[in-house]
């Protein structure tokens, strides 16, 4: 078949064929018969599973999968409200006694920050998507805080303070420092005074303007830095050879977004500085340096490799 005739049949089907072209095509193809078959074809559809049965299965599935939005409670008759209130009261009394034994928690959702000021004056600024847990009643003996995520500490002099993370422990007296932990990886920056970072049996002491990294139970050499505030309080993230999956988690924490990275490879590490207040710029810079493309649907970001 010649080049020009290449799309005659699809033009014929779409009804955009010219009379001359039609005459030429008729010489080659039995159009009446083809039209008849295509007409008959319309009586068929691709076989599918019955939707009713699928819906029953699906209802079971979503019963165990919480959607992101909380359901509104259904309206209850008044007597059920009263029983509910009584139960709530009983629960609250129980909870009060129980919580006295439990640590207090401070959690920041993605894209939000919080500050906690303790009675003796210690200030903790919590970065987005992070959590602190502490028992203040024990603080007369020892100041202990559990940390997940990242926080900047301004510790008032007094009893020793211990920050526990998954990657290690930081011991301080009175000082200012920032802890950024992502599971087995952690960075501790000391801005003032001294802190001691311990991982297993290893330990390093940081002076002012010194930092150390922890990676999979080992401590890096101590290095110096010049900034007067931690990166997240300067509206940026400084990544140095960070595995790309951790970088994505970190951005999710700061922008309250979610990545779909199923189409890209996550083996590489990323180095670079990303803004925390400008999602477009952050995504453009990140995807460009990884040779990816992104597509945004509300809070969902699809990542895919750049086409050749």
């Amino acid at each position: 078949m010649q080049q020009e005739e290449n799309i005659l049949l699809s033009k014929w089907l779409a009804g955009t064929i010219l009379p001359d072209e039609l005459r030429a095509l008729e010489q080659e193809v039995d159009l009446d018969r083809l039209a008849q078959v295509l007409e008959q074809q319309k009586q068929f559809e691709l076989a599918v599973e019955p939707v009713e049965t699928m819906w029953t299965d699906f209802e079971l599935k979503i019963a165990t999968t919480p959607s992101v939005e909380k359901k509104m409670p259904p309206q209850l008759p008044i007597f059920k409200w009263i029983i509910g209130l009584l139960l709530l009261l009983a629960f609250a009394i129980g909870a009060f006694y129980y919580l006295q034994q439990q640590p207090e928690k401070l959690i920041t959702p993605p894209a939000a920050v919080a500050t906690k000021i303790f009675a003796e004056g210690t200030k903790v600024a919590l970065s987005p998507g992070s959590a602190l847990a502490f028992k203040t009643e024990d603080w007369k003996k020892e100041r202990t805080i559990q940390l997940q995520g990242q926080a900047f500490f301004d510790v008032t002099k007094g009893l020793p303070m211990f920050i526990h993370t998954e990657g290690g422990t930081i011991a301080v007296l009175g000082t200012q420092f920032d802890v950024w932990e992502m599971g087995a990886w952690m960075r501790v920056q000391c801005f003032e005074g001294k802190v001691k970072v311990s991982v297993g049996s290893e330990a390093k002491i940081l002076g002012a303007m010194e930092m150390v990294f922890v990676n999979k139970n080992s401590l890096s050499l101590v290095s110096a830095f010049r900034e007067t505030k931690p990166d997240w309080q300067r509206q940026e993230r400084v990544f140095q050879k960070i595995p790309i999956n951790l970088v994505l988690k970190d951005l999710e924490r700061f922008y309250a977004i979610e990545f779909d990275a199923s189409a890209v490879r996550l083996n590489d590490a990323f180095s670079g500085v990303l803004p925390t207040q400008d999602l477009d710029r952050a995504l453009t810079y990140l995807t460009r340096s990884m040779n990816w493309q992104y597509e945004q649907q509300n809070k969902l970001i699809y990542l895919k490799p750049t086409a050749e």
Binding site: T65, E258, K299
Partner: peptide, 9 residues
């Protein structure tokens, strides 16, 4: 299921 999990967005 993906739509359900992301229904709020």
């Amino acid at each position: 299921l993906r739509l359900w999990k992301n229904c709020a967005k």
